[in-house]
């Protein structure tokens, strides 16, 4: 996990994003245990309550589950859920921005499609 504490995002949000990333990439596999609140807060010297807040976000989104006496685990199907959600956001985060930017540069829709094709051809 990497943190950029310069980022304008609140720390608890960064914590949940980092864990979510790890679930997305498969670094934290489904059904396996993730580091505890204490471990994460010790490693990065973040207030435990903040870490807990970040984790609870993911628990609420059904990506993590707490097993009493055993720890926090990645739920089954979590990875797929993250992928689905990110696909949804992809449109908002990337596509709309792309279109906005292209308008500033006076590129037409066909220009964009050409550029996309070029991108794929070049690997």
């Amino acid at each position: 996990m990497q943190f950029d504490f310069q980022s304008p995002e609140p720390i608890f949000l960064q914590v949940s994003n980092q864990i979510e990333d790890a679930i997305f990439t498969g670094a934290f596999k489904e059904g396996t245990q993730i580091p505890s609140t204490t471990e994460i807060s010790k490693t990065f010297q973040i207030n435990p309550a903040t870490v807990l807040k970040g984790m609870n976000l993911l628990v609420n989104n059904n990506l993590l589950e707490k097993q009493r006496g055993r720890g926090t685990f990645v739920t089954y199907g979590a990875q797929q859920r993250v992928i689905n959600e990110r696909r949804e956001h992809f449109y908002h985060d990337y596509i709309l921005n792309l279109i906005n930017e292209s308008k500033k540069l006076h590129l037409s829709k066909d220009d964009i499609l050409e550029l996309i094709k070029r991108g794929y051809d070049n690997g």
Binding site: T38, S41, K42, Q45, P48
Partner: peptide, 10 residues
Amino acid sequence: FYRELIESYT
């Protein structure tokens, strides 16, 4: 120190 502080606090 900071690690132990966090652990003890938890």
